[in-house]
Design a protein around this nucleic acid. Structure first.
Lengths: 199, 199
DNA sequence: GTCTATACGCCGATAGAC
DNA sequence: GTCTATCGGCGTATAGAC
């Protein structure tokens, strides 16, 4: 049986690992304040050259992170829509996902909620035009049609619902709220849903 | 003979005007993607040298904007607290202020809501520790004590209330909502207040 | 595919004439 | 206090040895 050898200072050899490290730095320090030297060092490399073997340039790294994160979010939302019928259930599923991501992959939620993406990825679609978020608006429209959700501008519904959800998660990510996101899940879901539910 | 072309752009001669232009650029393009050359050009100057006569460096410009904006917000909140007794009235006053600022001084709200301040002003207090926002938490605590607001973590109340308010204003600022903020004021206040009011 | 070394451009910042 | 001119440094990116 082959035994896996633990390396004490693990080199980030695969592109995926380097990308993960870059995401971490982008979300904590910011894109522009993170140099390729920072990424190289954090990856256990002595230079930036190694990075250029995997990625054409710094900007491409960010674009790949953008694609990965929004693609996987899109897939998750497809999955949630398939498994649930009612808009309320689908939104609940998305809420669960966001809270889980905040605890398990905070960098991903930082990327989605806090980074000013159009500053360093001006050519990418604004968040609300991505497939994932277009589907969220569709869920809201269906909920309005079905009489579950108040009949107001879907974008306004979105602002109320995800205003509550995202601002809470943001507070967890910044430390203003000091428990795990999961501790606030049920009451926050209720607050968000009540803000948009037809009484 | 070449025709003399009148340059329309008025010269920004006072420090305040230059600072206003810098704010505009920082909020639209981003701090790091705005060069001093950009600021100089937008101010009708031929070089960056003129800017250095008024400000020690680029960073100081941002720091001054930070100070101005949070100071004046703090003063406004003092004023609102003085004029109103109940927490609900005080929060309503702050809501009015935020909506008004969004329509009348969108750069200021962009600065407050959208910019990632700690990326280029790491030495300044995080938003929630500024005098203005500490006072908002105090208002919330008073509202809980008075029985107006649900008895949960004040930071959570803050997340629910300003989640609704800020996310709505953010949508106005990005164009996802296409009317003036004022058009959404009354219903958004209700949604935000209902999310935290004791029933 | 990781290293050394280096090129190169942009931008922040300064000096000094007027 | 605005201009011309220029400097220095950082950060991205490349060339080429091993």
């Amino acid at each position: 049986m082959d035994q896996e050898i633990e390396i004490i200072r693990p080199k980030a050899e695969t592109p995926d690992e380097i990308l993960r490290i870059a995401l971490k730095l982008f979300t904590t320090k910011g894109y522009f304040t993170t140099s390729l030297v920072d990424i190289a060092e954090a990856s256990g490399l002595k230079n930036t050259s190694g990075i250029y073997h995997h990625f054409k340039n710094k900007h491409v790294m960010a674009a790949q992170l953008y694609a990965n994160i929004f693609d996987s979010l899109n897939i998750s939302i497809d999955d949630i829509r398939r498994r649930n019928q009612k808009s309320s259930e689908q939104l609940h599923g998305i809420t669960d996902l966001f809270f889980k991501l905040t605890d398990d992959a905070p960098e991903v939620m930082q990327f989605l909620l806090i980074l000013k993406l159009n500053e360093f990825l001006p050519e990418e679609k604004p968040v609300m035009e991505t497939a994932a978020f277009v589907k969220i608006i569709k869920i809201i429209q269906a909920g309005i049609k079905a009489g579950e959700i108040r009949d107001i501008d879907p974008q306004l519904v979105n602002a109320y619902f995800f205003g509550v959800i995202n601002h809470t998660l943001r507070a967890v990510l910044t430390g203003d709220l000091n428990k795990k996101a999961d501790a606030y899940l049920s009451q926050t879901w209720l607050a968000a849903w009540n803000a948009i539910a037809k009484k």
